[in-house]
């Protein structure tokens, strides 16, 4: 196996552009998915069964179907239904956000429910409203416990963003496939892509473990 460094050099700018888009797609997915996930998680925790049911169904659907199917449906069916046309980047961000929101909702719910109920009682006994108790007492503690599972989800999200190559969003994996198509080489494009994904996920877990240490209270 000889490595063709020249074609790697030729594709380097494309890999760079692809990496930037991968980071952008993942970040957008993480941010929108987290906000959406918080609301869906809170929705699923509603005491009223009828109100919480739609949130439960949402989670079931998005966790229970493959992301590849979701991205196809959203890109070729859902987005065109509303806008007439379609856009691979927008469809990818939408899919990543909606999909990760389902997982993040469950992470939020587990985090919040893991906090001892005495914390809520103590807050309420001091005269705080439910919302104040959530905001100042429950959520900050729950958030700390949610960092490790959230980190997992974010890493999964970075990797799953590679599915965007199927709908031709020019991210990292797209350029890998393009390189294979042009030169009929497999080692160079995919090892390169793998290494770049690895750097991204390792950096992210490093950042998250630092955040976790900074939030320690002892």
């Amino acid at each position: 196996m000889d490595i063709h460094w020249d074609i790697l050099a030729e594709y380097a700018p494309f890999f760079l552009k692809g990496t930037l888009l991968t980071i952008g797609l993942s970040l957008a997915g993480i941010l929108i998915g987290t906000v959406l996930g918080l609301f869906i998680g809170l929705g699923k925790m509603l005491k009223n069964k009828f109100l919480s049911l739609p949130f439960g169904i949402y989670i079931t659907i998005f966790r229970g179907t493959p992301m590849l199917v979701q991205i196809m449906l959203i890109h070729f069916a859902v987005v065109p239904l509303f806008t007439g046309g379609t856009n691979a980047i927008a469809a990818t961000i939408l899919t990543l956000s909606l999909n990760s929101a389902a997982y993040i909702a469950e992470i939020f719910r587990a985090g919040i429910q893991s906090i001892d109920k005495g914390q809520m009682e103590a807050s309420r006994s001091l005269g705080m409203s439910h919302v104040q108790a959530m905001r100042y007492v429950i959520l900050p503690q729950a958030f700390k416990r949610m960092i490790p599972p959230l980190g997992n989800e974010f890493i999964v999200l970075i990797k799953e963003s590679s599915l965007a190559s199927i709908v031709a969003a020019p991210e990292l994996m797209y350029w890998g496939r393009a390189m294979q198509g042009q030169y009929f080489r497999v080692w160079e494009p995919y090892i390169t892509a793998a290494l770049i994904y690895l750097v991204l996920t390792v950096s992210l877990s490093f950042l998250l473990s630092r955040l976790e240490r900074r939030l320690a209270t002892e």
Binding site: G118, Q119, E121, S123, P140, Q141, K144, T217
Partner: peptide, 11 residues
């Protein structure tokens, strides 16, 4: 109110 388990806010 003071509780058996204190319920201080650990964070």
């Amino acid at each position: 109110m003071v509780f058996q388990q204190f319920n201080l806010f650990p964070h």
